[in-house]
Structures are given as structure tokens and as C-alpha cells.
Amino acid sequence: KRPMNAFMVWAKDERRKILQAFPDMHNSNISKILGSRWKAMTNLEKQPYYEEQARLSKQHLEKYPDYK
């Protein structure tokens, strides 16, 4: 399994927040909201998630050095 990218790292927690506020919302609508919010964020706001992506990628490479 591939490591999560920056968007997926961010969306994991954001999806939970949306589901808590709107428990009956369909997944497709949640995904649209998440995509819009991510696009509206600045690079500075996204930076911590890119850093986490890099950490996860490094960890994955160490754990699975032959992964293609």
C-alpha cells in the first residue's frame, strides 16, 4: 500500500469533522467539499501536510525498500 499524499493526510481528519457535523452526507459530496477546501488553502497552510507526506514516504521506503 502506498503512503498517503499531502491531500490524503489533511483530508483524513477533515472528513471526520464533516461527518460529525453532517452524519448523513454522502461520501461524494464530502469529497467535493474537501477538494474545494484544499484548493482554497495557501501553500503555507498546506506545508505541514507536505512535510507529513515526506515523513510517511521516507518511512515507507525504509520499511519496503523494494516497493515499486
Rank of each mutant, 00 (worst) to 15 (best):
S31F: 07
I30L: 08
S28Q: 11
M8P: 01
F22Q: 15
Q53S: 15
S31C: 07
K46Y: 01
Y64Q: 12
P23C: 00
E51S: 06
N5C: 11
E52K: 08
I30E: 01
K1D: 01
H60D: 13
D24H: 05
M41V: 02
W10F: 06
I30F: 03
M41I: 01
M8F: 10
Q20P: 02
Q47A: 12
A21S: 11
M25H: 02
E45K: 03
I30Q: 01
E52F: 03
W38H: 00
Q20E: 12
P23L: 01
K46F: 00
K17S: 06
K46N: 02
L44S: 10
S36C: 11
R55Y: 04
Y67K: 14
L19A: 11
D66I: 06
L19C: 08
R37T: 05
K46A: 00
Q20M: 08
K58R: 11
K68V: 09
R15M: 11
M41S: 01
A21M: 14
M4G: 10
K17F: 02
Q20C: 03
Q20W: 02
D24K: 08
K17C: 03
Y50I: 07
Y50E: 09
I33P: 00
W38K: 03
S31R: 13
M4W: 06
F22V: 03
P65H: 15
S31N: 15
D24Q: 05
A6W: 00
A11M: 04
Y49K: 04
D24L: 04
E14S: 03
D66S: 11
I33T: 05
E45G: 04
E52T: 06
E45C: 06
K12T: 14
E52D: 07
K39H: 07
W38T: 00
W38N: 04
L61P: 12
S57D: 12
E51C: 04
R16C: 11
K32L: 07
Y67E: 15
P65K: 10
I33L: 13
L44M: 12
K68M: 15
E14P: 00
L56S: 07
W10D: 01
K39T: 09
A21D: 15
K32T: 07
P48L: 04
M8L: 07
Q20T: 09
Y67T: 14
Q59D: 07
R55S: 09
H26K: 14
S31E: 15
M4D: 13
F7L: 02
S36M: 06
K68D: 15
D24F: 04
Y67D: 14
R16A: 13
H60N: 12
E14N: 00
N43R: 13
L56H: 07
P3H: 06
K12I: 12
R15E: 10
P3C: 04
L56P: 05
S31H: 05
M8C: 06
I18K: 00
N27T: 12
D24V: 03
Y67H: 05
A21N: 12
Q59Y: 07
S28H: 07
P65E: 14
E14C: 07
W38Q: 02
H26D: 15
L44I: 09
S57T: 15
L19P: 00
E14R: 03
Y50L: 07
Y67V: 12
K12C: 04
F7W: 04
M8S: 14
A6H: 00
R37W: 07
Q59K: 09
A54C: 11
W38C: 00
A11V: 02
I18F: 03
K68Y: 09
Y64R: 11
N43G: 12
K58A: 11
S57M: 07
E51N: 07
R55C: 05
A11F: 05
E52R: 06
R15D: 00
M8E: 15
R55V: 07
I30K: 00
E14T: 10
D66N: 09
E51D: 02
A11C: 06
K1W: 08
A54I: 13
K17N: 10
M25E: 08
R2E: 14
W10P: 02
R16T: 09
P48W: 06
M25W: 03
Y49C: 04
Y49E: 02
F7K: 04
H60I: 06
M41G: 01
P23F: 00
D66Q: 10
K46S: 01
Q53N: 07
E51W: 01
M25N: 01
D66V: 08
Y50S: 04
R16L: 12
Q53K: 05
N29W: 10
N43L: 10
E45F: 09
W10L: 01
K1G: 14
K39I: 02
L44A: 14
P65D: 11
M41N: 01
P23T: 01
N5Q: 07
L61K: 12
Q47W: 06
F7I: 00
A54E: 11
Q53M: 09
R15C: 09
W10R: 01
S57K: 12
I30P: 01
Q20D: 12
R37L: 06
K12Y: 01
P3L: 03
L56V: 08
I30H: 00
K32Y: 07
M25A: 06
M4P: 05
L61M: 14
W38G: 02
R37I: 03
K58Q: 13
N5I: 01
M25D: 05
R55F: 07
S28Y: 05
E14Y: 04
P23D: 01
Y49S: 03
K12H: 09
N43M: 11
K46Q: 01
K32C: 05
N5W: 02
P48H: 04
S57N: 12
Y67P: 14
K46M: 01
K17A: 10
E45P: 02
A6K: 04
Y64N: 14
E51L: 06
A11Q: 10
E52L: 06
A11H: 03
Y67M: 10
F22G: 05
M8A: 12
A6Y: 00
L61Q: 12
N27I: 14
R55T: 09
E51F: 04
Y49L: 04
E52S: 03
M41T: 01
A21Q: 15
H26N: 09
W10V: 00
N43Q: 11
H26Q: 14
K1M: 07
Q47C: 02
I18T: 02
P48Q: 08
N43F: 06
K39G: 09
A54S: 10
K39Y: 00
N29I: 12
P23E: 00
S31Q: 12
L56E: 10
L56Y: 04
Y49V: 05
K68P: 08
A6V: 02
M25F: 04
D24G: 09
A21F: 09
I18L: 11
K68N: 01
R37A: 10
F7Y: 10
M8I: 03
K68L: 09
K39E: 14
